[in-house]
Design a protein around this nucleic acid. Structure first.
Lengths: 239, 239
DNA sequence: AGATTAGATTTTGTATTCAATATCGAAACC
DNA sequence: GGTTTCGATATTGAATACAAAATCTAATCT
């Protein structure tokens, strides 16, 4: 197994995550430290640290001197992740829209333009991530950034499925976010983030079902009350 | 230095956090791995892993092959942490209130009773943490629990200051949460969580200022728009 | 004098080794 | 026959040792 040789522990986390999305690893399955270490040709220390990261991301269960297991990973779990990520993104969007920082808006404008022109999922994904990064740096403090980082493994990987399946919808949703931010409308910017992530979640979960990643009996509906809770962020009048 | 000998890395994280709240460590200050390791009489591996955890919590800045530093830590940062924690707690409260699980409500009822009777900050703190734990287990999925865990270091330590300073207010705020949960009123339960954490944040920040933990010029006001953003979760009609 | 770069030093990351704990299986007991 | 306890095995956690990278210092050049 070839391996990115900087930040081994993150590479390990990415590797395990990929196998999760490939359907190789199922909920409750045990994670053999030594096996992973050997598969990747690294020591056990970075493997452990990678699993610690995944534990913090809610994807792995660990206990002192006990084996590590894959945490619950079904469509409801993925949906919850996107609900939370959408809620937090709505927060950052609100702040950025309220601040109206010209430098930030100009940077976002350039990205929006590039996103409109760009072709191909690779380029789109790269630009979209940069867009979100700029917004987060501008609108999130240390702790909010830390929370968002919790999803830095899962969300991009899942979002890629949505990009591959529905590039046009993704483009429109992201553009809507930009417009709201440019107009300095916090409520609209928050709502746009939530709508975008909800779209992404639906597409991603559909794709993952097709791939057989989720256990068969799993079929939680697309309109669970979690989204309504999250929507409270963007409802109500201006602050 | 004496040290709890299970989960060394967590003990390290707790130790660094304590020194942060004691004012020994300031923003931007470098964290010497070897020094900490020697102070605690442990190796460098668990120290590094402890700092990795604090990095994930937004309290430490780290980069590949670069020294570790204390992240920004001022009253605005602490307030943001409580805003986010309050928002997430509001989410769990909403869910628990909607579910109306009799077993959960009974457990919470017992805790509420004990909280009404109990005397002394130690006992109150213990019961209050248990109360929150029960709610989180009942109302949060893997990812929401992971996000809440992000604050498992900072929030309890800071909250303790509020308990010491204003036990009566804390008791009232927590009881209000219980009442809303028992009545199955999601909106009220969410609002109560937010109000509670806002109270806690104000008290804690006041105490930390007294202790001289924050840099001197630091004086962000108590009514920043972040709370309003968070409040959007709990406003609006029932789902 | 100030900037630049090459070497020495420090510091971090990873591998290896050793210790601590849990898991698994078989024998003993009820 | 089923359950419990004790020992062997497996597996994780931490300490030590080694390698890789950055920082610091000082000498060199402009």
């Amino acid at each position: 197994m070839k391996l990115e040789r900087s930040n081994t522990s993150e590479a390990v986390a990415a590797y395990v995550l990929r196998r999760l999305f490939d359907g190789d690893l199922r909920s409750g399955q045990r994670l053999d430290l030594d096996a992973i270490a050997e598969e990747l040709g690294v020591s056990r220390v970075p493997v452990r640290e990678g699993l610690i990261q995944l534990e913090r991301d809610g994807l792995v269960e660990r206990a002192h001197y006990r084996r590590a297991f894959v945490a619950e990973f079904d469509d409801a779990t993925v949906r919850e992740a996107f609900e939370l990520y959408g809620m937090l993104s709505a927060l950052t969007n609100r702040r950025v829209a309220r601040r109206r920082d010209p430098a930030v808006l100009e940077a976002l404008g350039k990205l929006d333009e590039a996103l409109a022109r760009c072709d191909g999922p690779d380029e789109f994904e790269s630009l979209a991530r940069e867009f979100r990064r700029v917004v987060n740096v501008a609108g999130a403090g240390n702790h909010l950034r830390a929370l968002l980082r919790t999803f830095s493994g899962l969300v991009p990987v899942a979002a890629r499925f949505s990009i591959d399946d529905a590039l046009a919808d993704e483009r429109a949703a992201l553009h809507a976010e930009y417009v709201a931010l440019r107009d300095g409308d916090p409520a609209a910017a928050g709502a746009a983030a939530l709508a975008h992530l909800r779209l992404t979640a639906d597409n991603a979960i559909r794709a993952l079902r097709r791939r057989g990643v989720f256990p068969p009996g799993d079929r939680s509906d697309t309109d669970d009350p979690g989204w309504d809770d999250a929507a409270r962020i963007v409802e109500g009048s201006e602050t």
